[in-house]
Nucleic acid binder design. Structure first.
Lengths: 223, 223
DNA sequence: TTGTGCGATCTTACGTCGTATGATTACCTT
DNA sequence: AAGGTAATCATACGACGTAAGATCGCACAA
């Protein structure tokens, strides 16, 4: 056994950081007790002194990511004016955190209960909205609407991750033109103004657009 | 070995139906090769004659659920007038399918590529929208917005599934009133018009409200 | 009738996972 | 030096996905 002077002592924090690193680098399925142990140069069973179970560890992962969101959105930008600008900025920051940890939305949504840190985000959001004249009822709905966007919008609906591979042959394209004309039009460049808006799927722009719709709608519902 | 006359022959369809049944009844983690075999009265390895791997089986699960959505939304209601009513109805139907299979959104979002059946839904949606005067660009955005709602809104953000257990003691409530006053107000009945809008979290109403915001926004963007 | 071929199913086995149990270590206190 | 305690490890078990090959049952040819 390597003496403690040579090796950092274990801790819940160090375990969670290592697990996040594994998930970021190799996907959530690589987060394994034995692999975490390997990364921390200890045996898998040693982790159980700091973590109750694999489930608790996964909950810790979610907590870690949501903590990042809290840290990123704690201080509002100096020049921000109005609730819309504030909330928009926070949602974009939250999304950027999720994009850094693509496994996070799935993990968060798989939990039976929201991690405690989450309430800090909600508190801040409700405060901002109520100050801007929202009813509590409407603020509650805003939480749902915005939360499901940040967690649900990360994944692409089309395209296998990156649009590098031309997954469709000419024949398939021809067949598609007949059976699904609208999707074919959507996928074909130069058929409707901009270039094929299906192949060039700018998810960030889609996100901001949809978020804008929601914020506009909430603003109208405020009255 | 039980002769074939006594026992239905295996098939990909039967395997997928059994797997969906397991997932509905016991959660997605109960969907196991051995358990499916048990349900179909065969050995786990026999499934591989019809299913390439566990991953392919999971993709098949997603396909099955999305197929349910297609079936439910194939025929529009007779009295429906206008794209908004049509799309609203389809989204509600899609959501009702997801609520029957709470594991489905996670499974669908975990896939590297959308199942082929999905395109039928998109084709129908884009057709309806383009007919109503949407540009293809805007229709594309509508797909993203509505899709992420149907898949992302199913899970509760608060509350451990059902609100039966009073998870908070009086002390915790007191502490919360000080550190998170807005959430406390949100959770407290009779403090703001309606009764506590956090404890009585009518997710269906939240969903319909948010969906309404999106549809209104899309309608405005149409011009 | 007796092969014979083949599609469908089963048996066995391997490596990996989470984790229960109990031993073992390193270090502090006296 | 002795003993106690917190931290770490070694071993083991059952469940998982699945590779490789054996085995079954039946249709058809001789």
């Amino acid at each position: 056994m390597i003496p403690a002077t040579v090796r950092q002592p274990l801790s819940r924090e160090r375990i969670l950081v290592a697990a996040v690193g594994l998930a970021d680098a190799y996907g959530i399925s690589a987060v394994t007790m034995r692999r975490i142990g390997e990364a921390l140069d200890c045996e898998a069973m040693s982790l159980y002194y700091y973590v109750e179970s694999k489930g608790a560890l996964v909950a810790g992962l979610a907590e870690q990511v949501i903590g990042e969101v809290v840290a990123a959105t704690a201080a509002d930008p100096p020049g921000a004016t109005g609730w819309r600008e504030l909330v928009l900025g926070r949602c974009l920051l939250a999304r950027s955190v999720m994009l850094r940890h693509p496994w996070a939305p799935q993990v968060i949504m798989s939990l039976p209960e929201a991690p405690t840190v989450t309430y800090a985000i909600y508190e801040q959001l409700v405060g901002t909205l109520v100050d801007a004249g929202f009813t509590y009822e409407l603020a509650h709905r805003a939480i749902h609407a915005l939360g499901s966007m940040v967690l649900g919008f990360t994944q692409e609906l089309f395209e296998p991750a990156d649009g590098s591979a031309p997954t469709m042959t000419v024949d398939q394209m021809q067949a598609m033109t007949e059976t699904m004309p609208h999707l074919a039009a959507l996928a074909t460049p130069d058929i409707h103004g901009t270039e094929g808006s299906l192949s060039t799927c700018d998810t960030q722009a889609e996100f901001e657009f949809t978020l804008g719709l929601l914020l506009d709608g909430l603003d109208r519902a405020r009255a």
